[in-house]
């Protein structure tokens, strides 16, 4: 971490540009292409996951500091809970008669 404070923060600038590019791509995919809706969802979903990972590693010090293990545990726990909430909701709301 000490090293990064000196000199020009190339990593942060590149990360920022990639994040902006990913956001623009997502908008382009939705508004300017004629893919099927499910393809659009898959594409922007993938870009969202990639961008989240980018944020975690380039800006949020995921792999730095002396408590990196607990950070990794917390992140995995949060991702697991996110999956439960999102996948669980989709499953429940589309199963059986509930959609009708």
């Amino acid at each position: 971490m000490e090293k990064q404070e000196k000199g020009f923060p190339y990593g942060h600038v590149i990360g920022f540009l990639v994040a902006v590019a990913l956001t623009i791509f997502a908008l382009l995919v939705v508004f300017k292409t004629s893919f099927a809706t499910s393809t659009k969802f898959t594409l922007i979903g993938l870009m969202a996951v990639f961008q989240a990972a980018l944020q975690l590693f380039m800006f949020m010090h995921m792999t730095e500091g002396n408590d990196r293990d607990s950070k990794v545990i917390h992140t995995i726990y949060a991702i697991g809970m996110g999956i439960v909430i999102i996948v669980g909701s989709i499953w429940v709301m589309t199963a059986g008669h509930s959609i009708h």
Binding site: W91, V92, A95, G96, H97, S98
Partner: peptide
């Protein structure tokens, strides 16, 4: 009783 079916 929402009717999510037996699996859920």
């Amino acid at each position: 009783t929402m009717g999510v079916g037996p699996t859920v």
